[in-house]
């Protein structure tokens, strides 16, 4: 979080701090607390989040599969987290748009993991993508891609 230059920053090479991002992404976001989403790992420009299965998060009452909307919240949050893990200078991150493909139904009764990466960072906009899966990202239940607005408090000519 040191260089205060005005140019487009590359993705941070420093390992983001798991405790700091946990504070922001878990404790700091009431919905994530409510869904018991856990940030399990982070690295420069990416990370892993886990959503524990719960009966009250089901979307299809006939087969007990998690609601698409829960997966959306998980993937949105995971992409936002990946953007934060990519930032050299801290910024507020807001979702501009998000596309979700529901590749197959999640398996009833199983936790869902999201693996997200920020693959492009510019001064005002960051691009991130994520996969949701049970066992392996090779066998995803859903994928997401989104654009995120970055806003920083501007300090004129410092």
């Amino acid at each position: 979080m040191t260089p205060a230059g005005d140019r487009t920053g590359p993705i941070s090479e420093a390992r983001p701090r798991l405790d700091v991002l946990r504070q922001i992404c878990m404790e700091g976001i009431p919905l994530n607390r409510e869904l018991a989403i856990e940030l399990s790992d982070v690295w420069p420009g990416g990370g892993l989040m886990r959503l524990p299965y719960r009966g009250d998060l089901v979307g299809d009452p006939v087969n007990g599969v998690l609601a698409g909307g829960v997966i959306t919240a998980l993937l949105d949050g995971a992409c936002g987290m990946a953007v934060m893990a990519a930032l050299v200078r801290p910024a507020a991150v807001a979702t501009l748009d998000l596309r979700i493909d529901y590749l197959r139904p999640a398996t009833a009764g199983r936790d869902v993991i999201a693996r997200a990466e920020c693959y492009r960072l510019t001064r005002h906009v960051a691009f991130a993508r994520a996969l949701a899966y049970h066992d392996s990202p090779e066998d995803p239940v859903a994928s997401a891609a989104g654009a995120f607005m970055l806003t920083r408090r501007h300090r004129k000519s410092s």
Binding site: I29, L31, A67, G69, V70, A73, G77
Partner: peptide, 22 residues
């Protein structure tokens, strides 16, 4: 309160608005 995504603004979590749209 549990629908909040950004307590500072404050604003609802995008995931909840996404679920409403869906």
């Amino acid at each position: 309160d549990r629908l909040v995504g950004n307590p500072v603004l404050p604003a609802l979590h995008g995931g909840t608005v996404g679920a409403l749209l869906e």
